[in-house]
Nucleic acid binder design. Structure first.
Length: 279
DNA sequence: CGGCAGGTGCGGA
DNA sequence: TCCGCACCTGCC
């Protein structure tokens, strides 16, 4: 993780129980970090991993739903986490667009190997992201050599916006929802699908579900209506039903059910799901 | 080897 | 506001 420009190695360890949860964080850095820095870092980790999120009201409502209740039991305590910064998530979102997972990973690997910082700590080695300043000024052709294709333009324009200080992640956290949405949509290469993921994952809007892409439509049609993925339920109908059923928690509810389904299939493959997930 | 993928911007209706 | 289309690249 980078925090305030400093590349850090983090090691998070379980240090509690379900009833009395706790996390130990070991911080590795090239130079000494003062107390104020560590306090701010701790606050940021709590934010990014949603460690202070009170799930009780969600569970209270969700236990009344016959499909959601068993998922809540299996995943009690689970909260979404987005370990990276807004800028880092935007880069990942761009790399995910119009590509299968395997190719997204390949593009991300090439970008990190070229522009990231390899950090070795605790017997491990991971890449930290580059800063917007470090990548601004790189030519589009140089990025295209990494086989990111037309995404090079989006990566550069988003990078320039951050390098020039046009986007303030912390100001956006405090901004009104519609202003936040508009600021994200203003970024070149960032459209409704990416914004939906970002408002949920990065800005923790648990009711953010306004866009369902075709691949999600097929999965939700089967998951919620047991409908043949080849003949999916219209997006408008899906949005309406999920809103009525899960209200202000609707995207968190979908997240719980999606994780439950995905990991169930990881242990014991679910044929229809395997077919719908491209690798 | 054509078609399409965990989208988006753009031009035209 | 909506719709069709092009777009890098890799893989089925």
């Amino acid at each position: 993780m980078r925090w305030r420009g400093v590349p850090l190695g983090l090691k998070l360890q379980d240090a509690g129980s379900v009833d009395a949860p706790g996390v130990d964080v070991h911080v590795y850095a090239a130079s000494d970090l003062d107390a104020a820095y560590l306090t701010a870092l701790s606050d940021e980790i709590v934010y990014r991993y949603n460690l202070a999120l009170d799930l009780a009201p969600f569970y209270e409502q969700g236990r009344g739903d016959p499909q959601l209740a068993p998922a809540i039991d299996r995943w009690c305590g689970m909260r979404p986490a987005s370990p990276g910064s807004l800028y880092e998530y935007l880069i990942v979102a761009i790399v995910l667009q119009n590509a299968v997972i395997r190719r997204s990973i390949q593009m991300m690997q090439a970008l990190l190997e070229t522009y990231g910082t390899l950090l070795a700590f605790d017997g491990q080695a991971f890449y930290a992201f580059w800063t917007p300043q470090e990548l601004s000024g790189v030519t589009e052709d140089a990025l295209r050599e990494l086989k990111v294709g037309y995404r090079a333009g989006s990566i550069l324009r988003v990078t320039e916006a951050f390098a020039e200080g046009q986007v303030d992640e912390f100001a956006l956290r405090a901004a009104p929802r519609e202003l936040r949405r508009a600021a994200l949509l203003d970024l070149y290469g960032i459209g409704p699908a990416s914004v939906g993921y970002i408002l949920f994952d990065v800005f923790h809007q648990w009711d953010e579900l306004n866009h369902i892409s075709p691949w999600e439509q097929r999965i939700y049609s089967k998951l919620f209506f047991d409908r043949d993925p080849a003949d999916p339920v219209p997006v408008e109908q899906l949005l309406q039903v999920l809103d009525e059923r899960f209200g202000v928690w609707k995207m968190l509810a979908v997240h719980y059910l999606w994780e439950d389904l995905f990991w169930s299939s990881a242990r014991d493959p679910i044929p229809w799901l395997q077919e719908l997930i491209r690798r």
